[in-house]
Design a protein around this nucleic acid. Structure first.
Lengths: 342, 342
DNA sequence: GTGAAAGCGCTAACAC
DNA sequence: GTGTTAGCGCTTTCAC
């Protein structure tokens, strides 16, 4: 049986209260006693028991605020599912969530929402937002005021966020190209890239990974056109249609982010789904349907549910370790999905 | 705050002890009172708090015995890793493991090992074994004597095992073929199949899924040869070498189970790695190396670590729910791995 | 500064 | 049959 705080107290000849004070670096213990207790705890290899900790700490429940721009973006539904699953598992341990789901990428709106979560009494935050200076400042401010923040799905570079939980965008792009190269196309690739936004670092990294791997594998390709869908299917449809009509030689469409339905609608309407290779990222229901319908050949996923789930687990562990743990980034796997393993 | 056993006791005008007895269907409570308490518990939506339960139940720690034939089979190392990770996470909750790792598939040895785990005071078992009558009988006997058994990686058909935690072999085979079909080979496939054993249901299911999907996709193929590696690399090497020499037209090798290193050694030695498509299952270190070396084109994995981890979690939840939960099978994902997403 | 004690929610041993 | 009580390991409050 593992060593308990009681045994340490007995061995050190002090009370359990004192041991607890020492172990939590709380004031009110004579330095020499503190040192003595610390030594004994170390010698005995003391590791606090989580079950006891959890039960006792129910008096200070943990409220986690989750911010995400998921309205109108099915992708985030899976992240929320992960959040909720973690909440269900940890609710008995005193964890509850407040989820703030908004639409779009307006910086002011994001800052206001994040700040209001913090003001609303959350003990920690999970945020999926844009990596720009104003937001980084906001996040740093929150961390300074004692609210740990986990960056979910999109990292916040050079901030004091606790850690990043999300995918490796570069690897995702590389994987798309790697799989494409295995398919050893007969003719040179005439490529149309439909990205989400050229302002989104993740999207650009996917493209960078994609093209660098194509070059490395010496796959001949020509980039015919690139456009931004702005996460809007109608817009994506128009742009795709225009590009395909203007450039009938296009034989491969790489959908980097949202807009999948729009892009594919154009492809199908022009009767090109048989002769155009279509690759995409992420795995929402419309994407799955398009794979089943034979329009999309494969998609590269990033385990969004796992991202939400892990972020909460990491925060919980962090609190349970007295905010001492300094968790590592958690990078979800790059998942290849084709019809058969959907 | 959730409703506690105390509140039920108060509401029902009885003691906490009585409530506990009712909730656990223990004898010694007048039926009408029991009914009354049950009603109140339902009305209040009582859900026992896991933290409390866990702490209290440390007096009866849970010992799980894990049996697997993993000696000499790297695949099982990952399953064990999953077992150990679950143990580490749950050790504070009173869970400990006894892992019995043996070599080979001799039925008598398996039965002896499994029985000895049960006799050794385990409260539950995880077993990866062969699905044959003698073993099914043994498992049923254990379950009858009150030891729940989870079938890990290989199901035990028509037994009283709690549930199956493992992959979908049929889907794995289908996915291999699906990906192969995306690679749209220029010439008809002349196929060599290297299976583990024709006695292993899982291996056969992979082959069945594989060939049915090839047919469905109308990929022209001819099965040139099939052999059993018996999980032995040297034997696999000899057989592969013989087949390739006898049939130089072979242009695709499907490695269904262990023996990957042996098969690939023959391919490389004969200088055929450039012109033969090589697909495999599972993802052990030699397989990864062979993918990096460009010998294997892709492999289909089954998340073995997740299997071990989940099996323990499921058993723990089962005990925490007073053995009432009757868990569902847990099927791990069919994972496609290529060089870029290894 | 330090010890003693109460309590988190649940279980089980022991009274009556 | 039922109530009471003593923990599980930890935190925190209140005395001294």
């Amino acid at each position: 049986m593992a060593v308990t705080i009681r045994q340490i107290a007995a061995a050190a000849g002090v009370s359990r209260g004192t041991v607890d004070r020492v172990l939590h670096n709380r004031p009110g213990v004579k330095p020499e006693i503190a040192e003595h207790v610390r030594r004994i705890a170390d010698d005995l290899g003391f590791l606090p028991n989580r079950a006891g900790k959890i039960l006792a700490s129910r008096k200070q429940p943990i409220r986690v605020g989750c911010f995400l721009p998921g309205v109108g973006n099915l992708f985030f539904d899976d992240v929320v599912r992960g959040y909720r699953r973690a909440e269900a598992e940890l609710s008995d341990f005193g964890v509850s969530l407040v989820i703030k789901n908004i639409r779009g990428y307006d910086a002011k709106t994001h800052i206001a929402a994040i700040s209001s979560l913090a003001a609303g009494g959350c003990s920690a935050l999970c945020v999926s937002t844009i990596d720009i200076p104003e937001i980084r400042r906001t996040v740093n401010g929150l961390v300074d005021s004692g609210i740990p923040v986990v960056a979910v799905n999109t990292d916040l570079s050079h901030t004091k966020r606790l850690c990043y939980v999300g995918c490796d965008y570069l690897q995702a792009g590389r994987t798309a190209a790697g799989l494409l190269s295995l398919m050893s196309p007969r003719e040179p690739l005439n490529l149309l890239i439909a990205t989400g936004s050229l302002n989104m670092k993740g999207h650009n990294e996917r493209i960078r990974g994609f093209s660098s791997t194509l070059r490395k594998k010496e796959i001949p390709y020509r980039l015919v056109d690139v456009f931004e869908s702005q996460d809007n299917d109608d817009h994506a449809y128009e742009m795709t249609r225009g590009a395909l009509l203007a450039h009938p030689e296009i034989n491969c469409v790489y959908i980097v982010a949202a807009g999948v339905s729009g892009v594919c609608r154009a492809i199908v309407e022009l009767g090109r789904q048989r002769d155009i290779l279509v690759l995409s990222h992420d795995e929402i229901e419309p994407t799955r349907r398009l794979i089943r319908d034979g329009v999309i050949d494969f998609t590269i996923g990033q385990e969004p549910e796992e991202q939400g789930y892990r972020a909460i687990q990491i925060l919980f562990d962090y609190f349970m370790s007295d905010r001492r743990s300094s968790p590592k980034n958690y990078i979800t796997r790059t998942v290849i999905k084709i019809l058969e393993n959907l």
